[in-house]
Design a protein around this nucleic acid. Structure first.
Length: 560
RNA sequence: UACCCCAUAGUGUAACGGUAGCACAACAGAUUCUGAUUCUGUUUGUCAAGGUUCAAAUCCUUGUGGGGUAACCA
């Protein structure tokens, strides 16, 4: 990961930025991240953020955060705040914080300019008629009967629109371009619509609001953006972006489009995420199974891993979908180096050590993080009755199973070697306890005679175990591409196993886990102490991602 | 059906007319007090057909396949 950070990425966008800088066309690179504050940020935004902020940083430039708040119907201050919080969490700091709404005055003056130039007109057709008259992709549109009004009439009407003399939807201001253009965006696009609605930032001063196309390029221009980076679906809007700047004769930034991020199992459609929340399929926007930045944060995803992932994913114009394994790789890579190791038993089976001195408690020293010596060690209480993982014992093991089984010796991590001497069973045949003896000479985990064991398993003293809620989280969907199936809704693929809540037996030190602290429960997975539901002394742990498990993999392949 | 964009191992992504490379995944082995990590090695690729050129993943043409576009959303 460090090498990825040290090696500047290469892609067609950076190539152009570099070329512009070298040719002298651009002196100081300025980019921007322009979210609409009508929802929470998700992984897809993470790529956009890493791209615009990353490029600005690499080229010694600046990057603004701009709220693209031109539609008061959907926007809210809550999102404005959440967006800033999420961008900061990812590790980025904007140079300027701007709002499209702050440009409304300038935008309006420019609109009057276009009207006076004869480049815009007020149209009184209703929305339905206008849509019909726009034509289709294969047929050209027909002109509005209001298209050839005089600039003077249009100007008067526009002022009256602005002054609130007309009802919502009765008229719009349109650019006068070409009703026969192949690019539908240029068939006299709407610039202003009437909405008698207060704006979360501009207050009650406006009743006409600019459309995206009429606001975005000019906002970029005002801020002196040199490279306006956006996703592929805005490609068709670039000619309009350019047209407005040209007609206004103002500075024209360069818009460059790249493919949006797609990752298996993760949805990035605001509409579908909203459906998940409103349908109660998840607990909210910050549900740890959600691909929102808040959800991922709560799940324990390190922002560094997300950034490394985005960096690796790169920029291209090809519509691709990344394997979840790649994201997982960066998450594990970071967590492996940084998270404290702890022992926790999720599916407990009792282990009784028959030759253990009754009542004795040994404090065993355990390494906190083998990848980081500065993390130090801790003491874990060892007694004659322990919890071990049910799947770490098999009465009749297959040849490739080398954990505990009758007659076999294994190491209890950081503790002692134990040898299985027998098992207790309930009437129905289920194993209720495993009996064994321990070798006192193996304290600390090594045999003085040099003998080896094939396996090391984790354990927790029954007398000291912390009983805690553990959420075993998995993909929200049963298939990697829940949205591409004919005749099926993505909700049909909701996984019933995406969250399994269980009571775990955890080593006592976990009682003091801090909210948001990340751990590796050894031999199992990475977990985070849930910042939302944990209370003092009663932590709740969420599974971020599993540890790789090559044994389980071979088992599955063998049809197990 | 019109226009725009795109096409390189399983998945992504480099190579900018001159040896097709990297990451993840997969597989095999070594190491290991986590069947983790780490290390070593292996497999697999230029959508198709023509053309230009000494030389094409790269340039041109055509075809095929994929994506996008017809909100008073962004």
């Amino acid at each position: 990961m460090t090498d990825a950070a040290a090696t500047p990425p290469t892609d067609f966008v950076r190539d152009r930025v570099r070329a512009d800088q070298q040719s002298g066309k651009v002196k100081h690179v300025v980019t921007r991240f322009p979210p609409e504050p009508n929802g929470y940020l998700h992984v897809g935004h993470a790529k956009a953020i890493c791209t615009s902020f990353g490029i600005a940083a690499e080229f010694g430039g600046k990057c603004n955060l701009r709220m693209d708040d031109t539609n008061p119907e959907a926007e809210d201050q809550e999102y404005v705040d959440a967006i800033q919080e999420d961008v900061r969490w990812l590790g980025f700091q904007w140079d300027g914080l701007y709002y499209a709404a702050d440009y409304f005055d300038q935008l309006y003056r420019w609109a009057e300019q276009l009207v006076q130039q004869g480049d815009a007109y007020v149209d009184e057709q209703d929305a339905e008629t206008m849509a019909k008259n726009r034509g289709t992709v294969t047929s050209s549109g027909t002109a509005s009967p209001f298209r050839n009004r005089s600039p003077a009439d249009n100007l008067l009407l526009l002022r009256r629109m602005k002054n609130g003399e007309f009802q919502d939807g009765t008229m719009v201001l349109r650019a006068k371009i070409d009703l026969a253009h192949n690019n539908l965006n240029l068939r006299d696009p709407v610039m202003y619509r009437i909405r008698h609605l207060p704006h979360q930032r501009a207050g009650a001063s406006w009743c006409i609001y600019p459309m995206y196309d009429w606001a975005h390029g000019q906002s970029d221009s005002i801020e002196g953006i040199t490279h306006s980076l956006c996703t592929l679906e805005f490609e068709h809007h670039r000619p309009l972006y350019d047209w407005f700047c040209d007609k206004l004769a103002i500075y024209k930034p360069q818009q460059i489009e790249f493919a949006r991020l797609n990752v298996e199992y993760l949805l990035t459609s605001k509409r579908k995420l909203l459906q998940l929340v409103e349908g109660g399929h998840v607990d909210g926007w910050d549900d740890p199974r959600m691909p929102t930045l808040r959800g991922m944060r709560r799940r324990g995803f390190p922002p560094e891993a997300l950034v490394a992932f985005c960096k690796h994913v790169g920029l291209a114009k090809f519509n691709s979908t990344h394997e979840y394994a790649l994201l997982d790789h960066y998450v594990r890579d970071y967590l492996n180096k940084t998270s404290l190791r702890r022992m926790a038993v999720l599916d407990p089976l009792k282990l009784v050590i028959e030759n253990w001195p009754s009542g004795q408690v040994e404090m065993c020293e355990a390494t906190n993080n083998p990848e980081d010596a500065s993390a130090g060690t801790r003491l874990v209480p060892f007694t004659g009755e322990l919890w071990i993982e049910r799947e770490d014992f098999q009465e009749n093991p297959p040849k490739d199973f080398f954990r505990l089984s009758p007659g076999r010796e294994v190491r209890l991590r950081s503790g002692f070697f134990v040898t299985c001497t027998g098992i207790d069973k309930a009437a129905d045949g289920t194993i209720t306890a495993v009996r064994c003896t321990y070798d006192p000479a193996t304290r600390g985990g090594n045999a003085p005679d040099g003998r080896k064991v094939k396996a090391t398993i984790h354990w927790v003293s029954t007398a000291h175990a912390l009983d805690a809620e553990v959420h075993v989280l998995d993909h929200l969907f049963t298939v990697p591409d829940p949205q591409g199936h004919e005749g099926k809704d993505f909700l049909d693929f909701l996984s019933p196993k995406s969250r399994v809540v269980r009571r775990g037996k955890l080593e006592p030190s976990l009682k003091d886990a801090a909210a948001g602290q990340r751990f590796q429960f050894e031999r199992l997975a990475y977990f985070v102490c849930d910042a939302k539901t944990s209370t003092k002394g009663a932590p709740v742990f969420l599974r971020t991602t599993t540890l790789k498990d090559s044994y389980q993999k071979t088992q599955k392949k063998a049809g197990g």
